[in-house]
């Protein structure tokens, strides 16, 4: 991680990951997963619950950031 902190691309990479964590926590804490009274639970394609979709999006963000950084910028690649 010291080598990642040592250059701009690495710092951007870490910032993206950190922001995704903060965004996820903020989304959860502000009730983004909950179903408002009187409404039906969110379901994508008829079966994917909000918890599944939110988590999959989070993993995909990490995956894309990792692919770009580790295969183009990581000093030890």
């Amino acid at each position: 991680m010291r080598e990642i902190m040592g250059h701009t691309a690495g710092r951007v990479y870490l910032a993206v990951l950190l922001l995704s964590i903060v965004a996820m926590v903020a989304f959860i804490v502000t009730g983004g997963l909950e179903t408002p009274a009187g409404e039906e639970p969110f379901l994508l394609f008829g079966w994917m619950t909000a918890s599944l979709v939110a988590g999959a999006v989070f993993v995909i963000v990490w995956l894309i950031a990792y692919l770009i950084y580790f295969f183009r910028f990581w000093p030890y690649r």
Partner: peptide, 25 residues
């Protein structure tokens, strides 16, 4: 209900972080 799955989402990031940030050193 599905809330407990967030343990998995966190764990996936945690395991990847181990191998990206601490593992090489």
């Amino acid at each position: 209900g599905p809330g407990y799955v967030f343990f998995i989402w966190g764990s996936v990031a945690g395991f990847a972080a181990l191998y990206m940030f601490l593992g090489p050193r």
